[in-house]
Nucleic acid binder design. Structure first.
Lengths: 178, 178
DNA sequence: AAGACCATGTAAAGCGTTACATGATTCT
DNA sequence: AGAATCATGTAACGCTTTACATGGTCTT
């Protein structure tokens, strides 16, 4: 149940934001860490309101609702942050496929891994390019966004390295030392 | 919809396995890559049977059903493996919390990150110890399991490094250069 | 005989995705 | 006036978790 806390946390930084605003900010700042669909976010905002963690501060044009975090909301955010043990759910579609590469021809397997490797390299290049274009402020969202971006770089680099190592391992298994 | 393919793939390697067998193997070999509950697995096996991707080869004591992958199942596994683009869903409970560390006191934030760091180091030590105890065969499950384990090591090491870097960044922000 | 383990299943509730629906406002 | 964008919501369906439920078999 972390979409709730992601929304709560974002709203603390963006006081007076609407669901629409939050949704955009979600994509920009936390898309790589937590994803949310429009549907889900609007639903969660209503639940948070019903439970008193946020409230509608004012209403704007086009039915826009501007939210504010209540004291109860801040307390809940803090509680979650420091007291709820993070739940690690590992589900990795690419890694899962790796397990079954023995089912296809060696060349197909190698091609698959090389493709993933190229994808990681490309994503890393994109991220590095993006990083250069962003003008970081010194607000919280910028500061922590930069940390997350560095994480992304390290993650992608690690993946790319590992993929290359896997390609070698596959080659060795396919053509064992003579 | 990858639990389906995880089950299908495992069953190819473990012909004649029951749901119970698969469940144990899931935990041992792929727990870090894809998780499944008992409930879910039994349900999926029934669906796979209904759709003709697997079949009950024989029945054992205690209602045990031993499954076998059909040709259609093998074809489906291959199709998924090579033709369905992997879907990358990033949801990381720890990383999400990082974004909101500005909400708590600097010491609390630093303590949080150090705790995660220690957790990663510990997990890395456990994994390395485990690796030494395992006797790897040369079957597919062993071979790919070893690759996955190496991934886990690199992942955890990367996380630990990054956490330490974050601690430093936090300290610098808290006490800027005099 | 008791306890451990084998073995499968159902039900409920929550989370997440996709698609559909509606309408207001702003810009060109 | 038409297009783009702002803005929120509902419905259906599937995935995931948790809890409950049941009973057979093997070991000591």
């Amino acid at each position: 149940m972390s979409l709730r806390h992601a929304a709560l946390g974002l709203l603390v930084e963006m006081d007076g934001a609407s669901g629409y605003d939050l949704l955009k900010m979600f994509e920009i700042t936390m898309g790589n860490v937590w994803q949310a669909t429009q549907s889900q976010l609007y639903g969660e905002l209503n639940k948070l309101t019903a439970e008193g963690f946020i409230e509608v501060a004012s209403e704007g044009p086009r039915g826009r609702k501007e939210y504010r975090v209540t004291d109860a909301g801040r307390a809940e955010l803090r509680r979650w942050l420091l007291e709820v043990p993070p739940k690690i759910v590992r589900r990795d579609d690419v890694l899962l496929r790796m397990f079954f590469l023995g089912q296809v021809e060696p060349e197909e397997a190698a091609a698959f891994v090389r493709k993933q490797s190229a994808g990681a390299e490309r994503a890393l290049a994109d991220l590095t390019a993006l990083e250069g274009r962003i003008e970081w402020g010194d607000d919280n969202l910028s500061f922590y966004g930069r940390l997350a971006m560095e994480y992304g770089r390290r993650f992608l680099a690690m993946r790319a390295d590992w993929y290359e190592w896997v390609v070698q391992e596959l080659a060795e298994r396919d053509a064992p030392k003579s």
